[in-house]
């Protein structure tokens, strides 16, 4: 006696698959790795998640530069934990990209060959220890504004990675702000150092949200697919509104003479952003682009023997 054969349904056609995908998005349900998805959705996500992962990994460098010069063991332990978190965030994101069929070693190669981008902010140098504080406060603050809505991104693995990242990002911002408060209670020289760091990082932080809405080529489709949830300009405005009162408590001046509360909207108006600088930095002409890529390349190539040794060891004990 033989078991009856199972009735296998015929493979649904592409239009039916597209309709099912659209219905999942419309219902605000999550797309999961083995679901059918339009090729453009997959490619767009790989581009965005890879760029995000690269930013976390390259982002270890500006602050990592201060690990050996931290002013106390306490600050050093904090900074070490933070830089380690950035590595972790990069790994969560590469893991999400791999669920879309990307290969993480290949993504790293593309970063080193400058075929994929990372956030423009990490191409600026960290000149003093106050920069470590300002990066935590402003740069991680801006990242939180960007990332919190991504916890509801339509692609499940990306959204779950973001939840994990956001939980840890709060520590990053608070340690930075606390560092700055400590310096502001110090000497005139320390206060001047904080103000100088704020002056240098404020505008690049605003650029982190990307080009204005009328010049953002990928935004509309991203929003329609629920990959992004808010426009660049909306998130930038939120960040400014959150940050102005924090600057007042800290006792620093944000370097924008046009910054003023709009009594009608309750939101802060701010001056024009220098988009030429943004485009220059993205094009590879920022102060540290070459240095960042060179160090990432060295990390890959100089440490290759470690991965080879581990592979050989695993082979012998298999």
């Amino acid at each position: 006696m033989s078991a009856p054969t199972l009735d296998r349904p015929a493979a649904p056609d592409e239009a039916a698959l597209q309709a099912q995908f659209d219905a999942t998005i419309a219902a605000d349900h999550r797309i999961e790795p083995r679901d059918w998805m339009p090729e453009a959705y997959r490619k767009g996500l790989v581009r965005q998640i890879a760029q995000h992962a690269h930013s976390e990994i390259i982002g270890m460098q500006p602050e990592g530069d201060w690990l050996l010069a931290a002013p106390s063991l306490r600050r050093k332990a904090i900074l070490l934990a933070k830089v380690q978190d950035e590595a972790g965030h990069g790994m969560y994101l590469y893991s999400a990209a791999e669920t879309l069929g990307a290969d993480r070693a290949d993504l790293t190669d593309k970063l080193i060959e400058r075929k994929q981008k990372y956030s423009s902010i990490f191409n600026y140098p960290t000149l003093t220890y106050a920069d470590v504080g300002v990066i935590g406060w402003l740069v991680d603050g801006a990242a939180i504004c960007n990332q919190v809505p991504l916890c509801r991104s339509s692609y499940g693995p990306y959204a779950r990675a973001m939840i994990r990242v956001c939980k840890e990002e709060s520590f990053h911002q608070r340690q930075g702000y606390e560092l700055l408060m400590t310096m502001m209670r110090g000497t005139d020289g320390q206060r001047a150092m904080v103000q100088d760091a704020v002056d240098r990082w404020w505008w690049p932080s605003l650029m982190m949200f990307g080009p204005p809405d009328d010049d953002s080529p990928n935004s509309a489709q991203s929003m329609a697919w629920g990959v992004k949830r808010h426009s660049n300009d909306e998130l930038r405005q939120r960040f400014v509104d959150m940050t102005v009162p924090q600057a007042a408590v800290l006792g620093v001046t944000l370097p924008d003479p046009e910054l003023a509360l709009d009594p009608d909207t309750g939101r802060y108006r701010f001056g024009a952003i220098d988009w030429t600088e943004f485009k220059q930095v993205l094009a590879g002409n920022g102060p540290c682009n070459d240095e960042r890529i060179a160090r990432r390349r060295a990390a890959r190539d100089d440490n290759a023997w470690v991965t080879e040794a581990a592979t050989a060891y695993a082979g012998k004990h298999a």
Partner: peptide
């Protein structure tokens, strides 16, 4: 919780 690559 996620994935990673490792030799063994």
């Amino acid at each position: 919780v996620g994935s990673l690559h490792a030799p063994d």
